[in-house]
Design a binder for these strands. Structure first.
Lengths: 223, 223
DNA sequence: CAACCTGGATTGTCTGACATTCTTGCAATC
DNA sequence: GATTGCAAGAATGTCAGACAATCCAGGTTG
């Protein structure tokens, strides 16, 4: 038995459920950016008490999914383009590194999983379901991050991606973006499968630069 | 007036004070790694109510400064060497990037600040005050991170550094580590001052590799 | 010696309360 | 008419107390 396997069963607490439900609600865009969240409303909607809710809000605050201003309460932060750019830049740093590491150390089994997720994205890309596109694309990258050999890299990356997931749906819905995205991702996959670290880095960098450009377009065309 | 200046005055809430005090206590090693924190004890020690304390604990949990296991409560996580290594690797990624960016965009005024912090470290290095050494060294890097032009880079870095600050004091107290650290930091400073991006990256990388090695030595010599 | 059991300690969660602060709409003033 | 001032209502910050569920240590029993 692997020593790092954690046998402890974790009963799900109200707090955890609340965090998960709220996170999902935020990520799926249920709340308008800039809008305030009213504790008493959330309490009745979620069916939890105020202390439990407030604990959950503190967790989400630390994840930067909400902001809490003293005496004004929680609200959904409005992400500026300059912040989004900064996130994309750090993401690039992390993803390029992860893709490179992945190429030289991923196991055959995980490689098959990666291929499967690529196929899943392929199917989503040919449809018009932009939510499915975002989900499968996220899967693809989280497999890479999970196999880069550095759990911290994965952890940090997850935190950043969550904050801009809001953008991804919009940029993906740009004409033809899903298809070109697919081509770029296939390139990444091929490089990793071939164990070519340099190529994987390059392909990953190319992909992110295009994704960033697409996000910018979808952003400026609106606000 | 710069538009990004935030005029809002933020009254410090009990929750914030609690987080700050606890964070400081943890970072300065007041609690033994692995030891549990008892809510009722902390409440009386800090003079806050249990709901406020629990909110603070949730914030610290999200920062990974404590762990909270359902029905067992909060505890100080024992950092394994493999985790520390993973953190050092991501830190390297971030710091190298930051140093490089810094070299090409820092302003004269901030450069003087950076020099001042280097001098402060120089003074601490010649003393035996390892706490002062850690603090001034941290200052040096946070100035670099603050001037790299990417606030997210800074934010992520801060989160990581906090988790291994525990190690720094010990590695710094290794014979001669402070002095060689000083030489490496001076190299970084010179490169940035010269605006030489490549040299700054290289110097930064060298510094972190040595710091990591020193941390490893101080670690293995003990557990 | 191992398995079991029990009582105290601790956490998870809720209710209710109250002071403080913010927001908003209206009235008064210049 | 615009600005200021104010008051009522809403929302948050914080606390105290309570109770069930869970964990833990130590003793008991087979």
């Amino acid at each position: 038995m692997p020593p790092e396997l954690n046998l402890r069963i974790s009963p799900r607490t109200v707090q955890q459920e609340t965090v998960d439900k709220l996170r999902l609600a935020i990520l799926s865009g249920l709340f308008q950016p800039g809008s305030r969240l009213i504790e008493s409303q959330l309490c009745t909607q979620l069916g939890v008490s105020r202390p439990s809710l407030r604990e959950a809000l503190r967790s989400l605050e630390a994840e930067r999914l909400i902001e809490i201003v003293p005496n004004r309460g929680p609200s959904i932060p409005a992400l500026s383009w300059s912040e989004a750019t900064a996130i994309y830049e750090v993401r690039e740093l992390l993803e390029v590194e992860a893709a490179g590491r992945c190429a030289s150390r991923i196991h055959a089994e995980q490689l098959r999983e990666l291929e499967k997720s690529l196929l899943a994205f392929e199917e989503a890309a040919s449809s018009n379901d932009s939510l499915a596109q975002v989900m499968t694309a996220a899967d693809f990258y989280s497999i890479i991050l999970a196999n880069c050999g550095n759990p911290i890299l994965e952890e940090v990356h997850r935190g950043l991606v969550a904050r801009i997931s809001f953008f991804r749906g919009r940029s993906m819905s740009l004409e033809g973006r899903a298809q070109s995205s697919l081509a770029e991702m296939r390139e990444i996959f091929e490089s990793i499968a071939a164990g070519d670290e340099k190529a994987a880095r390059k392909a990953s960098k190319r992909h992110l630069l295009k994704a960033k450009a697409a996000a910018k377009m979808s952003m400026s065309s609106e606000s």
